[in-house]
Every structure is written in C-alpha cells, then in structure tokens.
Amino acid sequence: MSVGAVGVEAVDVEAVDVGAVDVVAGVLLVIGALLTLAAGVGLVRFPDALSRMHAAAKPQVLGLICVLLAVALESGSWLTLLFIAPIVVLQLITTPMAAHMIGRAGYRTKNYRRSLIVSDELQDDIDRAQS
C-alpha cells in the first residue's frame, strides 16, 4: 500500500512540475510574440527608415531568446540548450551587421528626415574632414 501511495504521489508531483514548465514556456512565447507585434506597430507608425530600424531589433534579439528558451524548457533536454546557444550567438553577431549596413546606406542616400535629427555628429566629422 505504502509503495503504491508513494508512486501516486511522485506522479502527482511530476504532473505539477510539467504544468508549471508549460505555463512558463507559454508566457515566454507570449513575450516574444508581443515584442514582434511591437516591432510591427513600430514599423508601421515610425516616420523614417532609421527610426524603423530601432523598432526592428527587438524581436530579432530578445524575442528570439525568449522563444528559444521556451523551446528548451519545453523539451527539457540540455542538448536543446546546447543547440540554441549557437543560434543566439549567430543572431547576436549578424543583427548588428545588417543594422550597420542599412544605417550606413540610409545615411549616405539621405533616406531619413533631416528635421527629426537632434544632433548629427557624423556630419560634424565629415565637415571637419573636408575642411
């Protein structure tokens, strides 16, 4: 009897644990989806390309980390965590590359609203270099 009772209790504890992990993973998914929605709203409402880049980076870094953590939690395996580490590192390396290239192209082709810029330190440097 006592063995059976212990077994039932163990199963119950495990069920509660799995449920909590599921809820945490679901909350992480919702956070990632919220960040993506925020990026979408920012892309639609911000006035120029350089401002839109600001909104774009949130789901690419924090949203991806949240969702991949949810995947690792859900799978419950260290191997999954080992697999998502290079994904996050790759994304952290490549996202600033794209942002740098797009920002440079946007500045050089003047695809931004001059009137929205508070201070333009690059223009100061360009002026000093050309004088």
Binding site: P59, G63, V67, A70
Partner: peptide
C-alpha cells in the same frame, strides 16, 4: 531600406513562429 528592414523582421517573425510551433 524600409522594405529590407521590414523583411528582416518578417524573417525573425517566421523564426518565432517556428519556435511557437515546436
């Protein structure tokens, strides 16, 4: 540039959808 920024975000949202599906 607006289109490229937006398509970058679309790729990352596809990645997030894959994660949610997993």
């Amino acid at each position: 540039l607006d289109r490229m920024v937006a398509s970058d975000v679309l790729v990352s949202s596809v990645v997030l959808v894959l994660g949610v599906e997993m």
